[in-house]
Simulated scan of single mutants.
Amino acid sequence: MDPIRIAIVGIGKIARDQHVPAIRGNGAFSLVATVSPLDAGLEGVPHLASLDALLAEGPAADAIALCTPPQVRYELASRALARGIHLFLEKPPGATLAEVAALEAQADKVGASLFAAWHSRFAAGVAPARAWLAERRIEKVSIIWREDVRVWHPGQAWIWEPGGLGVFDPGINALSIATHILPRPFFLRQATLVLPKNRAAPIAADIAFRDAGGADIHMDLDWRQNGPQSWDILVETDAGTLKLSQGGAVLQLPSGTEQGEDIEYAGLYGHFATLIRGGRSDVDTAPLRLVADAFLRGRREITDAFHD
């Protein structure tokens, strides 16, 4: 079977650090091009300044990984789908829920595979955590996602703009795990969003959810963390406490601790290949819905200006 010819649109840190190695490590794919108006691309790989140039001039691509900021993703995705090209959408899948729904309908109409990729769901501890929780009664959940934005997102002005999500850019990773491992759906009850006075997106958030069975879920997001960084989910159950740490890589159960290999993006591309070969899509917007609800119902607080 011939490899799936794939191009990457948007060559930033995440594309270079994660997408390129995952694609090159998967025999189902062949990286045929990169696209960016600002980056020079990769040695030995054809590079174009725009998606329009790729579509007009080639090389031909069966699939595209869209790694651009979400605010500009819809137009690019729609133009690719119009050509029947399969699409991998880096998280979040779009700037709004409505545009993701429109892309899903367009993909279905043309018979292309659309994948809203939540990389944290492929962290080593997530699948076993989901299996363990399936037979447990959930009593309480705490999500603590605290990191230093200057370390992880230096100079990324787009992330502070409307649609860039601010602290929810990492926070949505936690929600992608929680919506996947918890056995019942949950919804927002109240939220406080903390915005620097010179930014349009929050730097911190405190959120209260409740699941369909009445269990409380508390989420603490902060981009001002100094010292040790925290990417933890604690789930108190009738059989003891489960803890996912390091963004889902380490699972602690009452019976012991498990730590697996970091295969998040390898897992994503394995799943994307399966979707394409099977003529299917995977567009789960549950994490983005919860973020949208926080912006819809959250109370705003203004804090000191933030500067990189």
Rank of each mutant, 00 (worst) to 15 (best):
A53G: 07
P70S: 06
H271A: 08
P154M: 06
R5F: 00
R137K: 15
A305V: 07
T303Y: 11
A123E: 02
P21T: 14
L48R: 11
Q225T: 10
D211M: 14
F115D: 02
E258A: 12
L81P: 01
T237E: 08
S281L: 06
L296A: 14
L268V: 12
A205H: 04
R16T: 13
A116Y: 01
Q18R: 15
W152V: 15
V100W: 00
A201M: 15
E261T: 11
V250G: 00
T96W: 05
V45P: 05
I203V: 13
T34Q: 09
P93M: 06
I64E: 01
Q190C: 05
R280D: 09
Q71S: 08
E43K: 14
I207K: 03
H47D: 08
I172L: 12
A208D: 13
H86Y: 05
A102Y: 01
Y269H: 10
I159Q: 13
R121D: 00
L253I: 03
A82F: 01
I217G: 02
I138E: 11
A28F: 07
V250Q: 01
L76K: 07
Q246M: 01
F186R: 12
R184A: 07
L193G: 11
G298C: 03
V126D: 01
A205Y: 12
I143V: 14
L193Y: 13
A294E: 04
G44W: 09
A49S: 08
P254Q: 02
D39N: 15
A61T: 09
P202Y: 10
L48M: 06
D282T: 04
A204S: 08
L38C: 08
L87N: 09
A22W: 10
G256A: 02
T241A: 08
S113K: 07
D308P: 15
F122E: 09
R210D: 09
E75F: 05
H180F: 13
I143A: 06
Q106H: 10
L114D: 00
P202N: 08
R289T: 15
I207P: 00
R289V: 13
